[in-house]
Design a binder for these strands. Sequence first.
DNA 1: GGTCGAAACGGACCGCGGTCCGCTTCTATT
DNA 2: AATAGAAGCGGACCGCGGTCCGTTTCGACC
Lengths: 199, 199
Amino acid sequence: MDRSLPLVTAPTAAPVRRDAARNREALLAAANALIAEGGVAALTMDAVACRAGVGKGTLFRRFGTREGLMATLLDESERRWQEAAMSGPPPLGPGAPARDRLLAFAGSRLEEHVRQDALIRAAGTTWGDNQSVIGFHVLHVRHLLLEAGITGDATYPATVLVTMVSPPVLRQQLDAARLTPSRVLTGWTDLLDRLLPAD
Amino acid sequence: MDRSLPLVTAPTAAPVRRDAARNREALLAAANALIAEGGVAALTMDAVACRAGVGKGTLFRRFGTREGLMATLLDESERRWQEAAMSGPPPLGPGAPARDRLLAFAGSRLEEHVRQDALIRAAGTTWGDNQSVIGFHVLHVRHLLLEAGITGDATYPATVLVTMVSPPVLRQQLDAARLTPSRVLTGWTDLLDRLLPAD
DNA sequence: GGTCGAAACGGACCGCGGTCCGCTTCTATT
DNA sequence: AATAGAAGCGGACCGCGGTCCGTTTCGACC
């Protein structure tokens, strides 16, 4: 682990009561199963509650809204990604040159966002505008930019680079503009090299 | 008008029948009135139909979904913006130096997106991922970048600059990162000057 | 083990988005 | 003007997200 940053916060405080914790896990398992079987559209709140063998009120008490439930599912994989970025193998994890890690960052986020696209869309702004996730990515990239020797303010360039592989921007480029993933990464790399000092 | 680009396409083909056209206008007027009175939350499909004096089926036939209705409302103001950018007064319209027009573009989009934020959020991906709008902006900025003498590929930098004043990115910067609008524009200007050749 | 307050549970209930289909209205054609 | 048939219309109906509140369960403390 190359530094300490707050990981994505637990969106719902861990329940204290035993039954509450058990139900929480049952609900998440049911939600994952439903998505695996029938896609995001199959994730109805009634179905989740029924499959988990609990009442609907319990489900809503735990996750607030359908989008909140989705955000929790996304947080799970985000947590795994963040661990990989902080203490996993290079080039995404520590141990590789900063520029290589930056490229790995872009490729990895692109892959993740394409893989989870349906769920991210359905979660709407609840997840997409998540401050802690974006904030983590910006700090991560900013750290690597500084390590790579960027001159001047690093926060805005970091924001730019993170933004350019964010879900809405990728959708625009991949779907609307009909670009291939590798073309997107080429553009991103060019942008990175314009922002870094010429070596 | 400095060039010809396709304006935002009519989202719903103009009705041929007289009564259909009349109802369409009545529905849009009702929708605008409801939003003016009670915000986006007051825009229920039943209320729009009732206020316009037509049946619910007619409303859905015309606009497809609630989001589709919102997208139509947004298209109206977008059309006005595009006219201002193509044939309005400088610096947004033609007649000013390219760099000034680019700054005017950023400021104008920021203002527009902040003003319409609630509606844009509520419209979801129906409007936000709108290819024709984003495509228009990218072409506009790309044109100005070339006029300003950018070297190399201009499309990706144009996409970057457009993206950085898009609604989700602005929300992240203004709400989550607590930046002021002028700070955002400063960052944008810096980015622009990094992308343009040093003069 | 008994007691008690708080936390969690569950399912009836509500409002809204969206669909469906029989009825009405318009306009092209003669 | 009459006609025909396509386009438009309307509102009953449905499913799902979300709420509410009386009931149940947990576990801390005695």
